[in-house]
Nucleic acid binder design. Sequence first.
RNA 1: GGACGAGUGGGUGAGCGGUUGAAACCACAUCCCUGCUAAGGAUGCGUAUGGGUAACUGUACCGAGAGUUCGAAUCUCUCCUCGUCCA
Length: 416
Amino acid sequence: MIDLKLLQKDFDAMRTKLMRKGVAGTLLDTLKAKNEELKIAKQNFEKLQALQNSMSKEFGAYKREGKDISELKAKVDANKIEITKVLDIQRQKQEELESMAMAIPNLPDDSVPDGADENDNVELKKVLTPKTFSYSPKEHWELAEENGWIDFERGVKLATSRFSVSFGMGARLERALINFMLDFNRERGFEEVSVPALVNRTALEGTGQLPKFEDDLYKIDGQELFLIPTAEVPVTNIYQDEILSADSLPKKMTAYTSCFRKEAGAAGRDTRGMIRQHQFHKVELVVLSKPQESEAIFDEMVLCASDILTALELPHRIVNLCTGDLGFSAAHTTDIEVWLPGQDQYREISSISNTREFQARRAKIRYKDGKKNVFVNTLNGSSLAVGRTLVAIMENYQNEDGSIDIPEVLKPYLNI
RNA sequence: GGACGAGUGGGUGAGCGGUUGAAACCACAUCCCUGCUAAGGAUGCGUAUGGGUAACUGUACCGAGAGUUCGAAUCUCUCCUCGUCCA
């Protein structure tokens, strides 16, 4: 959530930043006005309530002393009617303000380049050079079917479109990748955690998926539970509504989970293959840190994800997202895109974001800084998306006869 | 699924419808005393938000929400969680 105090104090600066991210200026004018109205409504209520409290105390004293209370009671009764009215107004204002504020995205950092969409993202660097093929490299779905690794049709039979079934070496490679990634992250200082795949509304509000993006989530019928779209949600919310000690920070965590996304609005995009599935495996990094250390940790996370790809000898590039491509909760985001020779292009395989205190404010995650309670910074990033890594291995390690070599670092995980 | 019981501040744990934001103990912080492998004493110590330069002060919060009442941690209802027993 954006900082409403800052909105009050430094309205113009905040407005300028949010307008870069496409938030209507008029919306912020309204928000500011509502915030002021709420403040007045609260003050009205509190004044009356203070009066009520003191009269009620007097009431007790009167009874003890055996005084006549009828006059006081009349006053107190009248005041109570006023309170009810004023409280109603306050509640309504509160609700209006909250539903507006919760739908406003994070402020982009000044370092985020302006831009409309992914075409305006800025490449920071390339790692490893794609190899040249003496033949026309195939796309992963073709290789997957040829090798009997992935069956897309039977996935549809079991569930619906955008589900698949992995067999044999395809399935084993997924498991090997998960273990390899978790071990890799652990060696970089990230503690492994295992979390629920279902979460409640509060958790999703904490990380920013709700209230705005409910259509993208699978919801359990009749319950306020949702399938997680990313491990970021449960892992970040582990410390929801807690005040952490300064020396317990940073909390560097890594988790493997399945992720579930409806992919609403993605009709027609990547319909073939396993680039965009409703269910996919992902190993995630999540960090809660002090504000002053979050940028250094961010760089660590990008390097960690990039180094996994390097270890797998997969060419990739690192890209700074522009304002138009930036997610709801992020202050800035770096994507890692892996080279897919079959598609002849780089495709996203990791997305690393610093949300600064945006999520922490929503999820109420603070730490004790001396005497003060301060919001932590939260960061998250894939390290990595397992399915897409498998895609990249298939396309980059393919041979002319359609066979696929196994990356050296994965061999121990496959006992080969 | 059913029957009971319980949910209080970092922890343990008192709380009669009014003087309880909440005893006590532990932990923690600062100070004092003392000097030795430790102990004693003093003070402070929840969160959020409003007002005030500040001292200070208003309001809300005792699992969540609603209700009764002039007044609720304390009574009622609903829900959630945990425990025990039954199916």
